[in-house]
């Protein structure tokens, strides 16, 4: 899941690199992707709260990831009218401290959910349909899992 969703993330025009798991653990690239997905919701003031100069400081990474996840949860709740199921929520400490790809994959899956339900979803879905078939299958399975666990 993580590898496929990283490939999907690379289709966004972010200042921060989305090359691999390490690039994503500080939360900066994911925040920039969310801003591209819905700039009205994940606006500049929200984006400016994500600290970019992180280095190896796991505390700042954890703080950024918490803001990203809180932003996503608010989006699901307010815009999509859903509560995210507990078993879809990532363990952020495992991402910030151990660069865990499984937990990072869960976070990316939630970002995917934002993309395929937002106002510009047509654009994002069409981009997904240009990806390699094997990646599309993983993305489809990820979306189906989100849909099957929706709590309205």
């Amino acid at each position: 899941l993580c590898d496929s969703l990283i490939l999907w993330l690379q289709t966004f025009n972010t200042a921060q690199s989305c090359k691999d798991v390490q690039d994503l653990t500080n939360g900066v690239a994911m925040a920039q992707v969310l801003h591209e997905i819905d700039a009205a919701w994940f606006d500049k003031p929200w984006l400016n709260r994500i600290k970019e100069d992180v280095g190896d400081n796991w505390r700042i990474k954890a703080s950024n990831l918490k803001k990203v996840l809180q932003g996503i949860m608010d989006y699901y709740h307010e815009f999509l009218g859903q509560q995210i199921s507990e078993d879809l929520l990532p363990d952020l400490s495992r991402i910030s401290e151990h660069s865990d790809p499984v937990e990072l994959g869960r976070l990316l899956q939630l970002i995917l959910g934002c993309a395929v339900n937002c106002e510009k979803k047509q654009e994002h879905i069409q981009v997904i349909m240009t990806l390699e078939e094997s990646v599309q299958h993983v993305v489809m399975a990820a979306i189906q899992e989100l849909m099957s666990k929706e709590i309205v």
Partner: peptide
């Protein structure tokens, strides 16, 4: 050719799925 058939089926499944997503109302749950 079975492998070509499988490939076409897989593409069809993907296309159906993503097209159904496109027709879903924006912001609404699944």
């Amino acid at each position: 050719d079975p492998s070509m058939k499988a490939g076409a089926t897989s593409e069809g499944v993907l296309a159906n799925f993503f097209n159904s997503l496109l027709s879903k109302k924006t912001g609404s749950p699944g």
